[in-house]
Design a protein around this nucleic acid. Sequence first.
DNA 1: ACTTAAATGCAACACTGTTGCAAATTTATG
DNA 2: CATAAATTTGCAACAGTGTTGCATTTAAGT
Lengths: 138, 138
Amino acid sequence: MQHCCKFMDIFSKKNIRPTTFRKEIVSIFEAKDHAITTKEIEEALGKHDRITLYRTLKLFIENGVIHEITLPNEEKTYALCEEECADGEHQHEHLHFKCEVCERIYCIELPQAPQFDLKNFIVKSMEINLRGICDHCN
Amino acid sequence: MQHCCKFMDIFSKKNIRPTTFRKEIVSIFEAKDHAITTKEIEEALGKHDRITLYRTLKLFIENGVIHEITLPNEEKTYALCEEECADGEHQHEHLHFKCEVCERIYCIELPQAPQFDLKNFIVKSMEINLRGICDHCN
DNA sequence: ACTTAAATGCAACACTGTTGCAAATTTATG
DNA sequence: CATAAATTTGCAACAGTGTTGCATTTAAGT
Ligand SMILES: [Mn+2]
Ligand SMILES: [Mn+2]
Ligand SMILES: [Zn+2]
Ligand SMILES: [Zn+2]
């Protein structure tokens, strides 16, 4: 039995050592409801080491704590994963939505994945990125 | 009335001066049926200037000659646009498919764009990337 | 052919991300 | 609790991708 903090869960479930730095990163993610850039993380952190941040993000991605979102002509962003993600296996049935007003990127769960029937092509995974105006800015 | 080369069309339609270098780039694209990386372009070119290539690609994108394809964890690739694209307005109703066998990225036209009903979110454009096995490798 | 405008080539630089290694932290062990 | 082993951190150096400024070359218009 350990502490009561939310991220202790994440760290034990995802098999990651709960260092001070890592806890700080997770709490930065938990304070936002949208995906964030390394720039935003670095602003939220005080003085810190750039390289350690990169290594932490990489570890988090590999262990299913966060996922990376790559939209054309945008900086990469990162968002917390669902519980089920682990070990580099990301189990997302969701799309990414970039609001052109607030410029935020949101993860949106889909009731069901859309089907694409491309004869003779076998589809194994898909990625959907939308742009428009979010519910808050609408 | 000018020459008979295919790319003369492109250049006059898209309002771009037909220099030797640019013609060479277009013919490299025309020789492939899939999207290509800058690395592949540079191999196809002989001795050349890296910066001029970047500037050419940028110009081609801005004027609707090619479009840039950004998949997570992949190098960017580029492919020729449809005729209708021009002036930074890309009119694609197609998705991108990365084959995990031949590793090529294909542009695939869709009969119709899928609809996403996200109440209170206004969808203005979408981007769909699939992974799997292409018809040739299947 | 001459003039003007645009494209090219080169140097320098910025940004993002990685690697090697020594010092500091964490975890496991007696 | 003290010590040893394993990980993580911080720093320096470097690699890849893309941009900017500027002098030179090339193409277009007269
Ligand atoms: Mn997401
Ligand atoms: Mn395409
Ligand atoms: Zn918004
Ligand atoms: Zn294939």
